[in-house]
Design a protein around this nucleic acid. Structure first.
Length: 218
DNA sequence: ACGATTTGACCGTC
DNA sequence: GACGGTCAAATCGT
């Protein structure tokens, strides 16, 4: 009885998430359409509004995902450590590959989450996710790998699009840089020193800004 | 103290 | 079973 009620609630939640994802997708399409027609101020306002709608969808999805986790917490017999490596490998996510000799800032905040030695590759691959993955549900990822020493050449592979808003006050922006040293660390360019509490799923609601990033091009 | 990075462990896919 | 993508504890930097 209890379990069927739980299943029913879970099913409803899944439906809600599906609908919200559809809404976000529609808003995304609308933004693309508007992007082509931003000629005057009113259009730009409309474009900004669509950006806000998208953020609202992302926020709701983020909260629901968080609650979904916590609602099943009673079933958490396994330890946190057991969750290591439990991920869904991307299959058909849109990718863009770019090769560059200079690692310039691309307008988004990235956070490094891994580095891996790749078979038959001289240099390790560096893994980055959008800083706003948790606070705005942004699914954008990228991989950076040095492919040549002299002259320096890097291959940058982008996965997915940014659904986050790029805040001008973002405190730290990663100029992804597997550097010349062995450990290929990233370089942090500190532009500001505002709060950067990315762990707080609700924090971004308070830092919504009016701007929508239009400049990101792959 | 807190957020970012490092790095070994873990697990899905091939 | 090997490889590659992700997680998360440990560590570092401010």
């Amino acid at each position: 009885m209890k379990s069927s009620l739980l299943e029913s609630k879970t099913s409803d939640l899944e439906k809600i998430i599906v609908e919200l994802n559809r809404g976000r997708e529609f808003a995304c399409r609308l933004r693309e359409i508007l992007k082509k027609h931003v000629d005057h101020v009113d259009d730009e306002d409309a474009y900004t509004l669509v950006g806000k709608i998208m953020s609202s969808f992302c926020a709701t999805l983020s909260i629901l995902s968080y609650n979904e986790d916590s609602s099943s917490s009673s079933c958490k017999i396994s330890s946190l450590k057991d969750r290591r490596g439990r991920y869904k490998r991307r299959k058909t996510l849109e990718t863009t590959i770019k090769e560059t000799s200079t690692l310039v800032h691309d307008g988004h905040a990235w956070r490094k989450y891994g580095q891996k030695k790749i078979l038959n590759d001289k240099y390790p691959r560096n893994y980055f996710r959008c800083t706003h993955k948790f606070d705005q549900g942004c699914q954008a990822n990228k991989q950076v790998q040095r492919i040549q020493e002299n002259p320096p050449l890097f291959r940058i592979t982008y996965y997915g699009h940014h659904t986050c808003k790029t805040c001008p006050k973002v405190s730290q922006m990663i100029c992804d840089s597997p550097n010349d040293h062995e450990d290929s660390n990233s370089i942090l360019l500190n532009f500001n020193s505002t709060n950067n509490n990315y762990n707080n799923h609700h924090h971004f609601l308070g830092m919504m800004v009016e701007t929508v990033d239009l400049s990101f091009e792959f």
